[in-house]
Simulated scan of single mutants.
Amino acid sequence: MKIAYSAEVAAALEAGQPVVALESTIISHGFPYPKNMDVAAEMEAVIREEGAVPATIAIIRGEIKCGLSAEELEHLAKSDGVLKCSVRDLPVVVGSDRTGATTVASTSYIAERAGIRVFATGGIGGVHRAEEGADGFDVSADLLELSRSRVIVVAAGAKSILDLPATLEVLESYSVPVVGYKTSTFPAFHSLSSGLPVPAVADSTADLIRIARQHFALELPSGMLVCNPIPEKDALSNEEVEALVDQARAEAVAAGIKGAAMTPYVLGALNRVSGGRTSEVNMALALNNGRLAAKLAAGLSS
């Protein structure tokens, strides 16, 4: 697999220094311009503050990039035609010399092949809720890729618009280790807890590093999901989130939105109906995950 590395990322990997992979969908589809540039800069900054090197992954004009220049970040942030690119989309986007922003699934896939073991994101995809107008059982490719890319993904659980009990069941079926960081319950993205138990808990960063080391030492074929709840001061209540999600999903159903288009549409609607508050929450949880991922990467490399 041909990957173009930035000089900083290439040097860090060569020297065995800690590197944290970052997705690019959060830049092209998660926030409007220029807020998305602020998010990208702050994510990279918090990772550097914890002693690791950030490696934002994307496809730029047909080339798989690991570590982006300022010009490439701006291209992602400002361009209208950036494709949301999961694993199945890689040959099309690369083969047609187009620009694509990577999802959790495609970032995990590329990160493993780049030799990066830790990846920070906001929240993973999962199983969509069954509702009128849905076509069958809609499961995010993120879950499948977690079962086959040996990368540790740090996230604030799964996005709150999803069926969280079903998402945890699929992760169990795929033999993906799920570890709560200082929490015994599965985080619900915008809110602290879904109330659903996680199968394992790491009470400290040192505990998490030990578990992660064993994951790689055992040569398990899967990744691992580290569930890092949003800081309490930034969280929304479960009741607030549920009311906002119901409103946003009703809009999506009325508009005939289905399948892969559902998540970006509903997240955009959530930002609108909340008066921009959910975007601030998204920012806070992403930065929180970046900090933890950098600490984990540093611990694994020492």
Results as ranks from 00 to 15, higher is better:
94 V>D: 07
94 V>N: 12
100 G>C: 08
101 A>E: 14
101 A>V: 06
101 A>P: 10
103 T>C: 10
103 T>S: 04
103 T>Y: 00
103 T>P: 04
104 V>S: 00
105 A>H: 03
108 S>F: 11
108 S>T: 15
108 S>D: 06
110 I>D: 07
110 I>C: 01
110 I>E: 08
110 I>G: 02
112 E>R: 13
113 R>G: 08
114 A>V: 05
117 R>Q: 12
120 A>G: 10
120 A>L: 09
122 G>N: 01
122 G>W: 01
123 G>R: 05
123 G>M: 00
124 I>N: 01
125 G>Y: 04
128 H>Q: 04
129 R>G: 15
130 A>H: 14
131 E>C: 08
131 E>I: 14
132 E>M: 10
133 G>K: 05
136 G>W: 03
137 F>H: 13
138 D>T: 10
139 V>R: 07
140 S>A: 09
140 S>C: 07
142 D>A: 12
143 L>V: 11
149 S>K: 15
150 R>K: 14
150 R>A: 09
150 R>S: 05
151 V>N: 07
154 V>M: 10
154 V>H: 12
155 A>N: 01
158 A>R: 02
160 S>H: 11
161 I>C: 13
163 D>L: 08
163 D>T: 05
164 L>A: 13
172 E>M: 14
173 S>Q: 03
173 S>K: 08
174 Y>I: 06
174 Y>H: 10
175 S>C: 04
176 V>C: 00
177 P>G: 03
177 P>D: 02
180 G>R: 11
181 Y>F: 11
182 K>V: 15
182 K>M: 12
184 S>I: 12
186 F>R: 01
186 F>V: 09
187 P>L: 02
191 S>Y: 13
191 S>Q: 11
197 P>W: 14
197 P>C: 10
199 P>N: 05
200 A>L: 12
200 A>P: 15
200 A>K: 09
203 D>M: 12
203 D>K: 10
203 D>T: 14
203 D>W: 08
203 D>V: 09
204 S>D: 03
204 S>L: 02
206 A>R: 06
208 L>T: 11
208 L>C: 14
209 I>R: 02
210 R>C: 14
210 R>P: 14
212 A>S: 13
212 A>P: 06
212 A>K: 11
212 A>L: 14
213 R>H: 08
213 R>K: 12
214 Q>N: 15
216 F>R: 07
216 F>E: 03
216 F>S: 06
217 A>E: 13
217 A>T: 09
218 L>N: 07
219 E>V: 04
220 L>Y: 06
221 P>C: 06
